[in-house]
Amino acid sequence: MIIAKPKPIEEIIELVKDLKSVLVAGCDGCVTVCEAGGMKEAQVLASALRMYFRQQGKDARVDETSLTRQCDRPYIAQLDDQIEKYDAVVSLACGAGVQFLAERFSKKPIFPGVNTCFIGVTEQKGEWTERCQACGDCILATTGGICPIARCSKRMANGPCGGSSSGKCEISKETACGWHLIYERLKELGQLDRFERPNDPKNWATSRDGGPRKIIKEVSQV
């Protein structure tokens, strides 16, 4: 899932402070699951903004809603009727949702209410970690199911580097050394031979480096 975290409220206030009406739009997808941008967060933010405006002596309107997904048109179309009531929308969806809203409502400023961070997993309640960088060419089959691109600070294809210490990355004792994990896992799988085989330079063209990406599934199209 996509993991996001709420933007600092002061940043959002800076974006909307001169407006008279704002819609806070949550998304029921990933950002709900990572507790960053669902209905709850929309209500909390809207309440905070209303209080902000009120004490500024402004009679601004701040409403909240949450859409099933902001990355699909039929769902964002639900705002078609209401959008005119607002000067701007603060979207709590991931960057994709924010942009999709912006495309649809081209005359309205659409502001991001969260920082979209990574593709990751829930470690425990309130803790998420990164697992995937969406490079477009998955190599997990060769690395024991642990991705060195997402989990090595230097995306090394042939790690670990000399900075690995007690299974932790040189950048922080909080971060596991991805290559240490790969090694342990390959050992468990009895595939340590893979570890000594140098991996060739990666083709990054499938990644963001190849420009904005697009996928077409022919069979799904008419």
């Binding site: 600092p8 409220i9 909390v44 905070a48 209080m51 902000y52």
Partner: peptide, 8 residues
Amino acid sequence: EILDKIGV
């Protein structure tokens, strides 16, 4: 934290 940030 929120109340501090919005000046309440």
